[in-house]
Design a protein around this nucleic acid. Structure first.
Lengths: 216, 216
DNA sequence: CGTCGAATACTCGGTTGCGAATATTCACCA
DNA sequence: TGGTGAATATTCGCAACCGAGTATTCGACG
């Protein structure tokens, strides 16, 4: 009956889905997939069932009983409790109101980009630009199809619009960076290049410098 | 000696750091923190030591021996192997060239935003805008300080610039959304509102619609 | 001169997360 | 008719992850 850690958004998605009515876990997964929420929330069966267990132990959802739909495996149906309702409401509010620190793979890669020679970086980022453009085009087409034909109200594609906005910003950033490097106007390019001219190996260290630290 | 899963970028950061020369794990952590890489890569001691173990078993790094710096706890010093060098090079290239699917908390929240009444959404997102503006201002000031005073070459703040670009895009997206809702021009706003007028509870279900699925 | 906090260096234990396996039934096609 | 593959519904076990704990020493301060 103790507090549940607000780490895995799948737990929130389970509660919000159960707010529509009692479901068994497999059915929750079906619903999320039908709505493409599995593209925005990490969903796999192992995690789903373990998350459901945690929620049950915390009293946020409760098993309504075990059904057996004649000739189908038996299944446990869960319902949202009042406590679960409050928790979902509060958690969702927090996610919307407070920006969370995210650790992005590309951001991580950028911290180590000095370990790759500038020429190779230009090539690699060129590939990324192509891939990003393709993703953006695909996403835009999909959005136009769904909303344009009124298959889905805009309310239910906001997450896709958000993704598009981030992708557009990323490709602009990468394009600008590549442009600076190829034009030779990127500050410190000479040292960066020189460092790599000295060695045959590609992976190498950036120069460490200490700097004031912001409060987390 | 088997392959290592490319899930945790900390493993890559360890290898790239070791490319500068042999270090013991605690020293790797110090280095990453001094360079603020811990703001872009999830770093804590538990994960660090387990990641080091995995890398060693995979033959990507090797223990050089156990030192004891008189009156200090003993420590194991590791070095990057040639195989580790290749792996780091390849992994880093992949991260730079190929956009990875990221599961963002705010994106997850947007999939469930229909469960919150429009008026409350406007309030919550208003808070987010304030917080985002503050983060952007803080980040810009920090960048100006570091690069403007030539404390750090731009090469070593690219990840911060990338973060800024994403934050700016996000706040623009949220602002536009809030504007549409408050202006009443958001399509489907009436139904959204009506749904919530019907019930006292805040968490509720969005309308499910099936739609064509893109290939992952 | 004592002690309190920060730094050093690592270990440990418990949860979480994930992929694969399981077992059954249905739908379809040859 | 029988065989293949998809759908249904869940369990399992391991690997990863994280936070807290441990033990020591150094430096600062009163």
């Amino acid at each position: 009956m103790h507090r549940v850690r607000r780490s895995n958004p799948l737990a929130l998605a389970v509660m919000v889905t159960l707010a529509e009515g009692p479901r068994h876990p497999y059915e929750i997964a079906q619903t999320l997939k039908r709505r493409h929420h599995d593209e925005s929330i990490r969903l796999n069966f192992g995690s789903l069932y373990s998350v459901v267990n945690v929620l049950e132990r915390a009293g946020l959802i409760a098993a309504e009983g075990v059904e057996r739909d004649q000739r189908r495996p038996e299944r446990t149906v869960y319902a949202l409790t009042p406590a679960g309702h409050d928790e979902a409401d509060d958690w969702l509010g927090e996610l919307l109101a407070t920006p969370a620190k995210e650790y992005l793979q590309f951001e991580a890669a950028l911290t180590m980009v000095g370990a790759v020679a500038p020429g190779r970086v230009v090539d690699l980022l060129g590939d990324r630009i192509v891939a990003l453009d393709a993703e953006i085009a695909g996403g835009a087409a999909r959005l136009a199809l769904l909303v344009g034909r009124h298959e889905l109200p805009r309310l239910f594609v906001l997450e896709a619009e958000y993704q598009q906005a981030l992708l557009v910003a990323e490709v602009a950033f990468v394009r600008a960076l590549v442009a600076e490097i190829t034009a030779g106007t990127f500050p410190g390019l000479a040292q960066w290049q020189a460092w790599h001219d000295g060695r045959s190996t590609a992976v190498h260290p950036p120069i460490p410098v200490s700097a004031p630290r912001r409060t987390p």
